[in-house]
């Protein structure tokens, strides 16, 4: 099979950073905060690269929609083994309000150009936790989808995907082309090797604009404010089990 895989990725506040809400409650502080590739997207890149290494795919193309600085995550993905990268560049203001529907439409335009046999994306980005883009892209394309994947097998024009669902696991077979979204246990992403970091520098990275793809990226949701959640404060330490049982029995409506 000479399939191409498209992997959309997003630059988000690093997993380990403790976020802060801006003083004016307009957004989460992004200035001078470490940014990285969304962890679910790393898993998507890894899966695509493994499929290529297994001979199932011939090319892995990564794409991100974001500001110029997002090129760093594209380079990271190239260092992990992707072949080519596309940045759909938006300005800072647009990037702050770029929403899943708009991204799905940008991706649809790219799918039209690239004609991939499979799109693998992260199930959600750890910033807005929306969990929408892959499903939206699939709907706009009229493709099947397999979300929350923990295992992917490609054979005979089908993807057989095990999904992590609330009640356990579910395995579906979907016809290709399709969209797959990754869950945490699909794979463990590799670390980039130094030779591959060097090679990544020479791999092609194309820059397009949203306008050139004919997509309106205006937001549909307006953020009115962003607030810290009410803080839960530490209670007390109890000395032993008896004391704990005593406390629980005095709490209303529990035991």
């Amino acid at each position: 099979m000479s399939m191409k895989i498209l992997v959309p990725i997003k630059r988000v506040v690093d997993y380990n950073v403790k976020i802060r809400v801006k003083a004016d409650n307009s957004a989460v502080e992004l200035d001078n905060v470490k940014m990285s590739m969304n962890p679910f997207d790393e898993i998507a890149v890894e899966e695509a690269v493994r499929l290529k290494e297994a001979g199932v795919a011939v090319e892995v193309v990564v794409v991100t929609c974001g500001i110029a600085a997002a090129q760093d995550i594209l380079r990271s993905a190239l260092a992990l083994g992707a072949d080519r990268a596309i940045l759909v560049e938006v300005d800072v203001a647009q990037s702050e309000t770029l929403q899943p529907l708009a991204v799905a439409k940008l991706l649809k335009a790219l799918v039209g150009q690239e004609q991939p046999g499979l799109v693998i994306c992260g199930k959600q980005a750890i910033d807005d936790d929306a969990n929408q883009t892959g499903q939206m892209l699939a709907a706009l394309q009229g493709w099947p989808q397999a979300t929350f994947a923990s295992k992917v097998v490609i054979a005979d024009g089908k993807a057989t995907v095990t999904r992590e669902v609330d009640g356990g696991l579910e395995t579906l077979a979907v016809t290709l082309p399709a969209v797959i979204s990754t869950d945490l246990r699909l794979n463990e992403p590799r670390y980039a090797t130094l030779p591959n970091i060097m090679k990544a520098k020479k791999k092609p990275l194309n820059i397009l604009t949203a306008a050139s793809l004919g997509v309106d990226v205006a937001p549909r949701l307006i953020t009115r404010s962003v607030n810290e959640p009410p803080k839960r404060t530490a209670g007390i330490r109890v000395g032993d089990v008896a004391q704990l049982v005593d406390k629980l029995k005095n709490e209303p409506k529990i035991i």
């Binding site: 260092a79 060097m198 520098k201």
Partner: peptide, 22 residues
């Protein structure tokens, strides 16, 4: 000739990942 800000920062970032996580 290969060396530049972009390469250096990519190398440092990836080394950091391995160092911090592993």
């Amino acid at each position: 000739e290969e060396v530049g800000i972009e390469l250096v920062s990519a190398v440092l970032e990836e080394a950091s990942r391995l160092a911090e996580e592993v």
